[in-house]
């Protein structure tokens, strides 16, 4: 059976609920936007229900502990194809097992989830590192990113703790939403950004901003030791796809 859901985490949990309700042992759970149609299998559209989602989540938490349930959420944010199926198998394995399964790496679903969580964690950490705020004329520190996975929800706490005394916004251009801190709380926002947002135009940004970018770039160049050059290692740490957001690389 194929369950189509709305791409939200609650939607996914509701799908799990339904699969159990229908006693379906090997469901396919697919995001609506990715579903291509299927002639052979029965298709069921999931209605996202907070109540069902909470029930599933409680059960999962009881079985997998806070670490295991966190792993499920992080892996879900990877948005990988078929991650829902892996997660379903993971939950299935946890529910029938009498032991804690979160470290049973020889089980294919547990291993896949662990690997995915690692990838997502790495991307989250990269965002902590590679976000470059640019100060706008209305004194908001503004950054644009395009993470491989949908990690911004995981970055909120870090940035909120760190930049408690400045307004900031990190905007995911790929998924078209951002997280915005207004000195009190962090909210999810959607903006219509001009195509030129990557250029630090003085229409939006302070003139001082551009000078700081140059200072940073200068600093970056000065710290390099030419006789130790190691381009491979450099690109391994700072993959090229991030360069367009790093002033030390694009200036």
């Amino acid at each position: 059976m194929i369950f189509i859901y709305d791409a939200s985490f609650e939607g996914f949990l509701s799908a799990v609920f339904m699969a159990y309700e229908y006693k379906c042992k090997q469901p396919k759970i697919v995001k609506k936007e990715k579903f291509m149609g299927d002639f052979f299998e029965e298709v069921e559209e999931v209605i996202t229900s907070e109540e069902k989602a909470i029930r599933v989540w409680k059960k999962v938490k009881a079985k997998c502990g806070s670490r295991g349930s966190q792993q499920i959420y992080w892996a879900f944010l990877s948005e990988l194809d078929e991650i829902e199926i892996t997660l379903f198998q993971y939950i299935q394995h946890a529910l029938v097992s009498t032991k804690d399964i979160t470290k049973d790496y020889a089980h294919p679903a547990v291993l896949k989830v662990a690997q995915t969580v690692k990838q997502v964690g790495r991307e989250k950490h990269r965002m902590d590192a590679f976000v470059r705020f640019r100060k706008t004329k209305d004194a908001i520190y503004f950054a644009t990113v395009e993470p491989d996975f949908n990690v911004l929800p995981l970055n909120v706490k870090h940035f909120k703790n760190r930049y408690a005394d400045q307004k900031w916004c990190i905007y995911d251009l790929k998924r078209n939403y951002g997280i915005f801190y207004d000195l009190e709380k962090v909210e999810i926002i959607q903006l219509d950004l001009p195509a030129s947002i990557l250029e630090t135009s003085t229409d939006f940004f302070t003139t001082e901003e551009i000078q700081f970018q140059h200072l940073w770039k200068n600093y970056f160049d000065s710290t390099n030791i030419k006789s130790r050059k190691n381009t491979k290692l450099h690109q391994q740490h700072v993959p090229k796809r991030y360069w367009r957001y790093l002033s030390e690389k694009y200036l």
């Binding site: 950490h125 590679f130 703790n161 408690a164 400045q166 000195l183 290692l233 450099h234 790093l246």
Partner: peptide, 27 residues
């Protein structure tokens, strides 16, 4: 070192390398 009283910065977590030089060392 935690950020208390809405100051600037927090160094209670793990270290972060914000960039890497062309010789591959962390910045």
């Amino acid at each position: 070192r935690q950020n208390k009283g809405k100051g600037l910065g927090d160094s209670s977590g793990m270290g972060i390398c914000h960039s890497y030089t062309e010789d591959g060392r962390c910045v």
